[in-house]
Amino acid sequence: MALERRRVEKDHLRALFRLKVAEDQKGLVAPNEITLAQAAYEAGSHVWGLWEGDTAVGLMAMIHPHEAGGMEEGEDPDAAYIWRLMIGAEYQGKGHGRAALDLAIGQGRDWGLPRIALSVVQADNSAIAMYEAAGFRRTGKIIEDEIVLSRDL
């Protein structure tokens, strides 16, 4: 499996909008339509479609902290931030989430930042275990009722 991230183009939208999480995961990550709409107003945001060959499997949005308009209390001013990571329900459990994290870690390194961070809804079916297996650790901070995790790059 070779996961690629691609800048979102107009002709990608239908494929990305078709992707949905499992019913029990709704509320853990915003739908792709919302992420793409919000990205236009989120300073420092970068959004990519996640593709396996010609198949859209997910969406990833990151924020470069030095390009962001302002930081929330508790946010790390020197950490690349994974703002959204969504893998379609039919593509979960196949390594796409971990591959997407590897792409995000590479982007954080390309930006020259020392850390990468994200926040997660605390729920039994959240992706916390996947993030911890990838080397992310809980920081002890909570932002907007979400658990903050980070790792050094």
Rank of each mutant, 00 (worst) to 15 (best):
M1T: 14
M1D: 12
A2F: 12
L3A: 01
K10S: 13
D11Y: 09
H12P: 02
R14K: 14
R14E: 15
A15D: 12
A15P: 07
A15Y: 13
L16E: 09
L16D: 04
L16A: 09
F17W: 14
L19C: 05
K20V: 08
V21M: 13
D24T: 13
Q25D: 07
Q25P: 02
A30D: 15
A30G: 15
I34K: 15
T35H: 11
L36G: 06
L36S: 02
A37I: 13
Q38V: 13
A39C: 05
A40F: 12
A40D: 09
Y41Q: 15
E42M: 14
A43V: 07
A43K: 13
A43G: 12
G44I: 06
S45K: 01
H46D: 14
V47A: 14
W48V: 06
W48P: 01
W48A: 11
G49S: 03
L50V: 04
L50E: 03
W51S: 09
E52M: 07
E52K: 13
G53Q: 04
D54M: 15
T55N: 12
A56R: 08
A56T: 07
A56D: 06
V57S: 06
V57K: 10
V57I: 14
G58K: 07
M60W: 07
A61G: 09
P65T: 05
H66M: 05
E67T: 06
E67G: 07
A68G: 02
A68K: 15
G69T: 00
G70L: 11
G70S: 14
E73Q: 11
E73R: 11
G74M: 01
D76S: 10
D76C: 03
P77V: 03
D78W: 07
A79S: 08
A80F: 04
A80C: 10
I82C: 03
I82Q: 01
I82F: 02
W83M: 09
M86T: 03
I87H: 01
A89M: 03
A89S: 07
A89C: 00
E90A: 07
K94N: 06
G95M: 01
G95C: 04
H96W: 09
H96V: 04
G97D: 10
R98W: 06
D102Y: 06
L103F: 06
L103N: 09
R109W: 05
D110N: 13
W111R: 01
G112P: 05
G112F: 05
L113R: 01
P114D: 03
R115D: 10
R115H: 09
A117D: 02
L118C: 11
S119Q: 14
V120K: 07
V121F: 01
A123F: 11
S126E: 08
A127S: 15
I128E: 14
A129S: 15
Y131D: 07
E132G: 00
E132W: 07
A134E: 14
A134R: 10
F136C: 01
R138F: 00
T139E: 02
G140F: 01
K141E: 04
K141Y: 06
K141L: 11
I143F: 05
D145R: 13
D145W: 12
D145A: 08
V148R: 00
R151E: 08
D152Q: 14
D152F: 10
L153A: 11
